[in-house]
Design a binder for these strands. Structure first.
Lengths: 360, 360
DNA sequence: TTGAAAGCGCTAACAC
DNA sequence: GTGTTAGCGCTTTCAA
């Protein structure tokens, strides 16, 4: 930073008052200082171009007005809306956000360590669905460090946790297909067999099965293909599906992510299959581009901004003066989904979805 | 943060040594401390679960190992790769990144002010093409605060600046169309008339014109439509283009951003126009999904990760011990483009693009 | 209403 | 090699 810092002492000297007086006007302890002196001090601050040193203040106040946001992948369409929502809540409250990406537990532990060193006031962990050990988080919690988890695998009811209703959404998405008359259902899943496992991938797959079971429809494992949550994977998954010999192909596909769905649309088109006439497609997640794919994606979206907003508010509550020793009771919140009906499943022909149906 | 901090003094007491000895082992000044004492100290640190307080250290060292990344929109496909590249360079060097979004000059000034208060060691400003006053940045520079600008409007050769070759790329993209035999050329621009103006939008438009001029092709202003760099805008722009009465439509479109191009593809398809047979499309920017649009986008991409990487390295150079008083000579770097030829312009029928042609 | 002084946790001369 | 001490810039009792 700049070489020679202007300090509170310089201001005090220039104004002919003591450091503590300057400190008082700085912190708006107006009742502690006369109007005349205050004007004097403010004048001096201006003249010297004084800028308070937040680090020094943090040192004595024992807080930094900074929170750490740790996530597995910046490179995920869910990240942006969550971050924006978090910032929108935290910044007006005077907090800064240190953003760290940590793809695995080791990285997370390291991030925790350095950020605690930096004395951040709290953490938000957003594992974009990676399902790993939480011991290091429990440790944090035990040290009574304010933290909230978004989309994390854990049944630990002692932590603040925000989840999405992945299974319900997937089930409902599949039901949407079934209500449309489809009986030959396939799915392109996220990485359901990876290590560490992906919570959302597993849940969405489970939701798909649940719908089939509920309707007494058979599960054809040849029609379950892992698309790895990636463009490339989604594309390949369709190719795989279509390459199976002597097989009927599914008439409808539940695709566990928007990204895979976009790529699947491409592969389907290349194979000369029309969507939705030959194959209907329903996806999950609703990035801005989903309205502009060909055909536009019908998708079940998860409220990302809301997750960010709630996480930030939970943290703020915890950070509230007075909440230091007595943390607010931990909450587990599961956010519901929205059905966004567009083109990729064909015209909607039934009633009953209204409760979750957005006006698009 | 946690209530009762374990300090260097506690460690010293427990180990039966002085604070400075602890400090020495902490900072790896190995030659200053005997092996036996070191072991003792380390043992004590472990036993007490000591964690050094980076804030206290910052205070005396006058640096925080934190840099501020300020950007106009998180919500832009260019952001992610830039951020990842910056982090990849900065984190191994021990730096943290405070991320702040500031859509306008006012927000930027505020961000600067609070981050300077927080004593960040340097700044990266990434205006995703917003072209505004730079006085507040000049001020920073004058206070000899390390900073580097990415994609900023300025001819000020006293600052570190990384730009993309927007005009060249646009010109070359248009030339691509012309070489393919097109003579009826239209363009969907970014917000070229907005206030504050968008540098990249203006440059890309200029590049398009430049190509037409060079080839002696007429500029038809009915075929220049502002798409605002948004999905919705790109979609509308095509509708506008096609709604013009008694007009031929362009046989090829240079679309100034990937986002607009994706939406344009949709609008074109809805109008029953085939791409590339009826209308060829070339875009700029290459997000992952560009390979999966229908048809896949031929696009001229700007090296985003490289920009981030270079920016981070420039900052690091400046932050190098010894560079404090004598800042390294400011550099202006313009990064070139890559042609990514896919489907939206039809088959490539000429030679000569090889210098910029990526192997896709 | 204002000031003096004790620290917040750590580093860096400088003694020993 | 190890210890003493004086700050880094600020807040905050406690006196005046």
């Amino acid at each position: 930073m700049a070489r020679k810092l202007v300090t509170i002492r310089d201001v005090a000297e220039r104004a002919g008052v003591s450091m503590s007086t300057v400190s008082h006007v700085l912190n708006g302890n107006d009742h502690h200082v006369g109007a005349a002196t205050r004007a004097l001090v403010q004048e001096a601050m201006r003249a010297l171009n004084y800028r308070p040193n937040a680090i020094a203040r943090s040192m004595v106040k024992q807080k930094t007005a900074t929170i750490g946001l740790i996530l597995t992948e910046v490179d995920n369409l869910l990240f942006t809306p969550v971050f924006m929502a978090v910032e929108e809540v935290l910044r007006p409250a005077g907090y800064h956000i240190v953003l760290v990406s940590a793809p695995d537990v080791e990285g997370e532990m390291q991030a925790i360590e350095t950020l605690r060193s930096q004395q951040v006031d709290g953490f938000i962990f957003m594992s974009l669905s990676l399902c790993t050990s939480n011991e290091h988080l429990v440790q944090l919690q035990n040290d009574s460090v304010p933290l909230v988890l978004i989309n994390r695998c854990s049944d630990d009811r002692t932590m603040n946790m925000i989840s999405w209703a992945d299974r319900d959404a997937a089930c409902e998405a599949t039901m949407h297909l079934i209500r449309l008359g489809h009986t030959r259902l396939g799915t392109i899943t996220g990485p359901i067999n990876s290590r560490p496992p992906r919570k959302s991938a597993i849940e969405r797959y489970a939701g798909w099965r649940q719908a089939l079971n509920a309707e007494g429809l058979p599960v054809n494992m040849d029609w379950v293909v892992d698309g790895q949550y990636s463009y490339e994977g989604g594309y390949r998954a369709v190719k795989t599906l279509l390459a199976q010999e002597g097989q009927e192909i599914p008439s409808a596909l539940f695709i566990a992510s928007d990204v895979m769905a976009i790529a699947a649309l491409k592969a389907l088109q290349e194979a000369g299959l029309r969507v939705p006439q030959d194959v209907a497609v329903v996806a999950m997640g609703d990035p801005p581009m989903a309205a502009y794919t060909i055909p536009a994606l019908t998708t079940f979206s998860l409220p990302t901004q809301e997750a960010g907003r709630i996480a930030a508010h939970m943290l703020l509550d915890w950070l509230q003066p007075g909440a230091y020793l007595q943390a607010p009771a931990p909450q587990q919140i599961t956010l519901s989904f929205h059905a966004i009906v567009r083109e990729s499943c064909g015209a909607i022909q039934y009633q009953g979805l209204s409760s979750h149906l957005d006006h698009v």
